[in-house]
Design a protein around this nucleic acid. Structure first.
Lengths: 143, 143
DNA sequence: ATGCAAATGCGAATTATTCCTATTTGGAGG
DNA sequence: CCTCCAAATAGGAATAATTCGCATTTGCAT
């Protein structure tokens, strides 16, 4: 099944060459249900015998972010960056502190708040980070 | 003026010893209008001829966070941690991407949202991170 | 004043990420 | 299809932020 294993058009449209590594990273990101770290991507691709180096992973991610194709998320209590494809719709995550399960939340509760804040603060607001965390039903501490 | 230069009670209450370094860090955090990094604290204290090492800064911050005295914030597009005293009231920041100015926002727009989410998701929600960023009026790009 | 658990200092180790340079490669143009 | 070159990659060294291990010091209960 020759699925969308090639992202040539998407890349060329932004004057980016279609390379094995970029295609592979896009494929990983697209097929993942959760944001991935640079290391996740590196290991996943190694696993599939796709040759790639960490510096390339970082450079590709950076390029994708700069071109609006991917976006970076950083989670509380970690100091590494997670990446995912930019969705049609802006959204946030609900994360389990214990098992790291990550639920995709529909919509954003902040649209109105941000608009109002922009007016009253004089800032030109570019974005926001929001991640909600806790324990999923399986990981809830007994009490 | 013998201001509150000693946090003995606050510390002892949590079974923490009152040390020169801990007092100094608490004082710095209390007198700062914005969250500080471990390095900020280290340099500020050096400046005041208070002997301290980076590992102590990190250890103290960690202890303060674990004891609910301070809290960690991490800003978009940086990969270092910022710390501030835990305020009476939970709040967020509005940050200028360019000059790093940081405004303290009153209240939290998410209280209801989180309550509702907790009900419908089955998670036991422990908290959330929210930082809003953009350009302050002085740093707005011309157009 | 004494003793000991707790806290600190210092440097080495780890982790995440960026940078440098030589080599390879996609794809435009002949 | 060849050729060519700017763009992309590999590999490893460098940097930045943070953590760790262990010897020494210090707060504070007695």
């Amino acid at each position: 099944m020759p699925v969308k294993d090639n992202y040539k058009d998407l890349l060329n449209f932004r004057n980016l060459k279609s390379t094995k590594q970029r295609n592979a990273i896009l494929e990983e990101l697209e097929s993942s249900v959760r944001p991935l770290t640079a290391e996740d991507l590196f290991l996943n691709l190694k696993e599939k015998n796709i040759s790639i180096s960490m510096s390339t992973v970082y450079r590709v991610l950076d390029t994708l972010v700069k071109n609006g194709i991917a976006q970076q998320t950083s989670l509380p209590q970690t100091n590494k960056a997670f990446y995912e494809l930019k969705q049609k719709e802006h959204h946030h995550h609900l994360i389990c502190i214990k098992c790291e399960k990550m639920l995709h939340l529909d919509g954003c509760p902040l649209n109105d708040y941000v608009k109002q804040l922009e007016k009253q603060s004089g800032f030109s607001i570019e974005g926001h980070t929001l991640e909600i965390y806790g324990y999923c039903d399986k990981c809830k501490p007994e009490d």
